[in-house]
Amino acid sequence: MTVDASLKEVSSSAATVPRRTFLQEVIEDTPGSDPRFEMCIQCGTCGGSCPSGPDMEYSPRRIFAMIEANMREEVLKANTFWYCVSCYYCMARCPQEVHITDLMYTLKRKAIREGYCRESSASDAPDFSEYFVDAVLKYGRSFELGLATRYHLRHHPLGAVKMATGMGLDMLRRGRMDLTPRRIKNLDQLQAIMAKAEEIGRVEREQGGIR
């Protein structure tokens, strides 16, 4: 075998894309120009500012340290990002201007794709997001009653009863909840765009070696 041929064999048998550290992977999977994740100085301002910080297994500061340490599985099983309320206090206060809230979304997507979200103590939360997405893909707009019914029947049957007799009834009585969904006119167009976007995202991850 020539040197050239053996090199070819090595490169085709190994993954065609170099293995990424967990930090590189989350950076590349986050939208915007530069999320600045590697700039974290472990000051803890994020955790101290977080309204649900006390209920998180690991504070956002600690999640950054764990990502740096390549603790992929522990990070993706955490409830931290599922308890994020998207208030952006961490991002507004971060002295290093790290896009902390965007990291939480990236970790949610990875935990869903890789199935780790089922092992999190906040295991109901992914379904809420996924059911929301289903309704929007189907109608183009959100459908609160359908989403709440499907989610609560699956996860909190008692909550569904409470909703139907308490707050849900109050909302219906005051004309604040649609019984049926509303659909946009050009749904075919939206669905074609969504199908293409899904494909582009998938190819981007494959080419970038992002799980």
């Binding site: 997507r109 997405v133 929007v136 707009r141 959100s142 050009n186 976007a197 995202g201």
Partner: peptide, 22 residues
Amino acid sequence: DDWNCCGAVEFIAVDKMQAYAL
């Protein structure tokens, strides 16, 4: 005319490219 959902905080938790396209 014919606007669709903005994605709220849920869509970006599921699919980045779809969320931005939406």
